[in-house]
Amino acid sequence: MSATLQPEAPVRYAAHQHAAYRTGPRLLRVAEVRALTTEVRHVVLVDPDGGHLAPYEPGAHVVLTTDPGGPGEKRNAYSLTDDGFNPRRYAISVLRREQGSAWVHGLAAGDLVEVEGPRSAFAPRHDQRHALLVAGGIGVTPVLSHARAIVRWGGSAEVLYSYRPGHAAHLDDLRALAEREDVTLHEATTVAATAALLADRLADQPLGTHAYACGPVPLLETYVDAARAAGWPEHRVHLERFTAPELDPGVPFTATLASTGERLAVPPGTSLLEALLATGRAVPNLCRQGVCGECEVPVRRGAVEHRDLVLSDAAKECGDRMLACVSRAARADDDIEVDL
């Protein structure tokens, strides 16, 4: 099961000219596949020529093209689990959930996979004095990357891991890290215990701490609420979502393209992204659920109902951009002029 590189795949990030700094779509070889739990597989990718790979910030992800050329072809983002320093391998841990992840579970050593990135969307803050790292389920992957980087560079961290017994990927790795003095691991296996632990630990972090969480939506909501209750300023509370809540079909509206004046009708249930792609415009996109930020388009005019989980409140208020996959006009039959 090997991929062939799609020749038309756009290189979005023109990087350093040395091959070891390539982040555009290229083929990497599967070096190892290992089951971490019954539902999670750890996949290690290496350069087919044995070279170095582009380094990355902790919390970064790569995008794999799953089932290339097949009916289930899709681009899925997976967090890298190492610290990102001078890597010779990219390691991801994949929960079997849908067609794309099932395809990854079918990979075997020697297969070639199209990989883009790494891309940093959940990086540590540079003024971080200490970190509170919160992981729920498979959200442990970027958290492990943060914890490993903190250990490498000599920082300190508290890790809070919420999991179902018997389904805790990388628990052994976190426990090994927690044998160090500067890393503490707290474990919770029920919703109530997780909420209590979050409230307790968020109330007891030294000045200069930043908190990072990755996990399912209910865990992230509990985390954000607990941080607010504990008086945390928003800029210290970071999270990465891998799922988004279901959205209603939305109101019908029109979109005017600034370059041509063309007007596109966007009926309920159709996204602006789909309408743009239907006209042949190559709008970059990935998750299509308002989580990854890939399909951000500039807006010239019109009130937008922002339904994404990416833009900050300030960016939403500014009104000069929107995520075409989920956001729509604020009112039915309004017109939004996009700068495309």
């Binding site: 968020l202 109330a203 007891d204 972090q205 030294p206 000045l207 701490t209 504990a230 008086g231 945390w232 210290r236």
Partner: peptide, 10 residues
């Protein structure tokens, strides 16, 4: 005092 405070302080 700064050593003793926790995040949430103003």
């Amino acid at each position: 005092a700064l050593d003793a405070v926790r995040i949430g302080v103003r």
